[in-house]
Nucleic acid binder design. Structure first.
Length: 735
DNA sequence: AGAACTATGTTTTTT
DNA sequence: ACATAGTTCT
């Protein structure tokens, strides 16, 4: 095996010890990190430089040195990453890595809170709520505080959520923010504080904990209770943290506390890949680490083992433009490779068709299906592509966007399980009661207020006098609750009982699409089957919801599937061929992103997307986008692409009328600009400020200035100022 | 009055 | 897919 080349960890266990294998499989810097003795280590690692491999070998190495696996803690970003790394390490150590304590910060804090929380007087039963639940509570509070309704202007739920998590507050002063509907944050800042106070009280009253509470309480446990702090930090001799740039201040503090007695911490991260500041992550944690842990050894991994040189040159060029200069510049020894391709289509439909055509070609050339991925900024950017893929019978798996547990029917079914775990979870009670016919928000609230004070809400419910119109459904509900409580059922058995009751209601509510939803419920049933106790199932679905699509069972493992994913969900993964679509101004960077920190984060996001590619990279954008009012607007290349030296990629574009029989979805009822000889003609016209022009979409306008080669700034009479590219815009001179 | 229905609008990214 | 607003039904 050639030195310094990546090896397949799965096949490398041939009777050798982990150290013997790693000496061959790792480069010098990686090897130094793996075999480091005690004390803090910071590994700054570029994209594709073998971060995971280094941590995996480190784990195996420690165990080989006699460290008991259960005294090693591995903290990662996603549960999937933790499982994958433990599995790989187990290949090197005869399975003993399976006893390593590993998981996300949130899952780990949940586990430790439940095991040691009594030191701070935590209740034994609490329910973890996810984002969707939190949004639900806020809606509830909004209406009960009289802040909802016609004429009330209020920022979106998402913005409130971001405010709650402190991300917006941190980035900019509250009062400066202006939202889409021209709402100034200062106008509702009092309301926001009211809502936040009520929200915190609501959680306390109902035994609910959100993600932030988990972390804050874990930190309190370590810091405020000497017994608990000693117990927990004594349990772990070595702390390994992946994706350190995605941690927030509390998480960094927790790492500090966990290692307070020994300082045996190794964190791995890449400051250029920080894309989660919107939820409080702070990549300065990496810079601060050496101060937090005096005597830190810093190791840089700069060799890239993933991509070919042409791809690397382009990605380096993306990140070079960053305002914050990063300290690494990656190189690769992988030879050959083709230049990345930039494609612009006249419409979204053409962009989608180009992607599908190219995928077809790749498949024919022998690229496996599971080595191709399409990435985008926002969940809905792939709608057009999904249509095209479906019409060509190409199966795909979409990641990111809606999670399975965020859809209404799943929440309904899970509510029954959650009140078993936490009988005072009014949010779930509310859902259950609303399902009853003739019971609406008012009645449900009335019932809840009489039972929620009780020691046993389920029993108290039985004494409630229902109105005749909904007595029957109410009795059936009581019957179900009775059966759920009495029996010694497995979680799966409980779910079956619930479905027996819920099925008729479910079919009535979702009469038009219940077969599809039904499949998802079956998927949940399969998941529950694997759990011994209900508490951990409820926790797991809140902490890391399963993805929708219920994909697993009908995938043949050797074939795999084509992946469509938001960039955020694609982090840490890699494919032979990667398409990044929707690279148009207004779409990427996100149109609300303001220059400065947010703009820079968007740039890093593109960097993350492009560095996922091993062999082939396609960057595409449409030259037309639909505005919210269903009109078509001209679109230009994303500023991030414009900054790249065009010599680093190969460019292609396709005009609308060249489209094959795709009129059904490309015809928006508006004439699309065509690439006629007129266009070439108009490109030859020498424009100068003051000239009057006509555009097929924007109508008449006047040339204001010439901001760049082949570009014009035009003041349109009806559409305001726009910068148009002469190659794409079909302009006519009005003499 | 409150529940149920219908039409319309909005949607960044997420452990 | 959901939330909201406005309307109709009980």
């Amino acid at each position: 095996m050639q030195k310094n080349q990546p090896v397949d960890i799965f096949s490398s266990n041939s009777g050798q010890t982990a150290s013997q294998v790693s000496r061959d499989a790792l480069n010098e810097a990686q090897y130094a990190a793996v075999t480091h003795g005690n004390g803090p280590v910071l590994v700054i690692a570029g994209a594709g430089s073998g971060k995971t491999r280094t941590l995996v070998y480190r784990m195996a190495h420690l165990i080989e040195q006699g460290v008991p696996p259960e005294s090693i803690m591995l903290l990662t970003f996603t549960r999937r990453a933790a499982q994958e790394m433990l599995y790989r390490a187990a290949q090197l150590t005869d399975q003993s890595c399976r006893r390593v304590i590993g998981g996300t910060f949130h899952a780990t804090s949940n586990m430790l809170l439940r095991q040691h929380g009594h030191h701070l007087g935590f209740p034994p039963g609490f329910t973890i709520i996810d984002r969707g639940d939190a949004e639900g509570i806020i809606n509830l509070l909004k209406s009960s505080l009289g802040l909802a309704g016609a004429g009330k202007r209020f920022p979106s739920k998402r913005i409130i959520m971001n405010l709650m998590s402190g991300a917006i507050n941190k980035a900019r002063p509250l009062e400066e923010l202006v939202f889409e509907n021209h709402i100034h944050l200062s106008e509702f800042v009092d309301d926001f504080h009211t809502i936040r106070d009520h929200y915190n009280q609501f959680k306390l009253d109902h035994g609910l904990m959100d993600y932030d509470d988990l972390l804050v309480n874990w930190q309190r446990l370590l810091a405020e209770s000497d017994t608990a702090g000693a117990e927990i930090s004594g349990r772990f001799q070595y702390i390994l943290v992946d994706e350190y740039q995605d941690t927030n201040l509390i998480q960094a503090e927790i790492v500090r506390l966990l290692a307070r007695d020994h300082d045996n911490v190794m964190v791995v991260g890449d400051d250029a890949q920080s894309i989660y500041s919107f939820r409080g992550a702070d990549f300065y944690n990496i810079m601060r680490f050496p101060n937090q842990f005096p005597g830190t050894k810093v190791i840089k991994l700069e060799q890239n083992y993933r991509s070919t040189q042409p791809i690397l040159s382009l990605t380096n060029s993306i990140i070079e433009q960053a305002e914050e200069k990063f300290t690494k510049s990656l190189f690769t020894e992988i030879e050959g490779g083709v230049r990345p391709e930039v494609f612009s289509g006249g419409s979204e439909a053409i962009e989608a068709r180009f992607v599908v055509d190219s995928i077809d070609k790749l498949l024919k050339e022998g690229t496996p299906k599971n080595e191709i991925a399409v990435l985008f900024r926002s969940g809905f950017h792939s709608y057009k592509l999904e249509m095209e893929l479906t019409s060509r019978y190409l199966e795909f798996e979409k990641r990111g966007g809606l999670k399975l547990t965020e859809s209404a029917h799943i929440k309904d079914a899970l509510s029954f399980l959650r009140i078993q775990v936490n009988p005072w979870d009014n949010l779930s009670w509310n859902r259950i009661l609303l399902q009853l016919d003739k019971v609406g928000p008012k009645t449900a609230q009335k019932i809840l207020s009489t039972i929620s004070e009780n020691d046993n809400p389920a029993k108290a419910l039985a004494t409630y006098k229902p109105a005749p119109s909904w007595k029957q459904g109410f009795t059936q509900l009581l019957e179900l609750l009775q059966r759920l409580q009495d029996s010694n059922l497995t979680p799966g058995g409980q779910f079956d009982l619930i479905m027996e009751y819920y099925q008729p209601i479910f079919e009535k509510i979702y009469h038009d699409d219940y077969p599809k939803r039904s499949k998802e419920l079956e998927h949940i049933r399969a998941l529950i089957g694997g759990y011994g106790d209900l508490q951990s199932f409820v926790d797991d679905t809140a902490l890391d919801p399963p993805e929708s699509g219920a994909a697993e069972q009908n995938t043949t493992p050797e074939e795999g599937r084509l992946i469509l994913s938001t960039i955020h969900s694609a982090k840490g993964l890699e494919w032979d061929a990667v398409f990044v679509i929707g690279l148009a101004e207004g779409r990427f960077p996100h149109q609300n992103a303001v220059p400065g920190e947010q703009w820079e984060e968007e740039r890093r996001l593109l960097y993350v997307a492009a560095t996922r590619a091993k062999k082939q990279l396609f960057l595409t954008y449409p030259r037309q986008l639909m505005t919210p009012d269903r009109k078509l607007r001209h679109a230009v290349m994303s500023p991030f692409l414009r900054e790249i030296n065009p010599g680093l990629y190969h460019q292609e574009s396709q005009a609308p009328q060249a489209s094959r029989s795709y009129s059904a979805s490309s015809g928006f009822g508006l004439p699309e600009p065509t690439r006629t000889s007129k266009k070439t003609l108009s490109a030859r016209v020498e424009y100068s400020p003051g000239m009057l022009v006509q555009h097929p979409l924007f109508g008449p306008g006047k040339v204001k200035s010439i901001p760049g080669p082949r570009r014009l700034e035009i003041a349109f009479d009806r559409h305001g100022d726009k910068i148009l590219h002469l190659d794409y815009a079909k302009l006519e001179l009005i003499s």
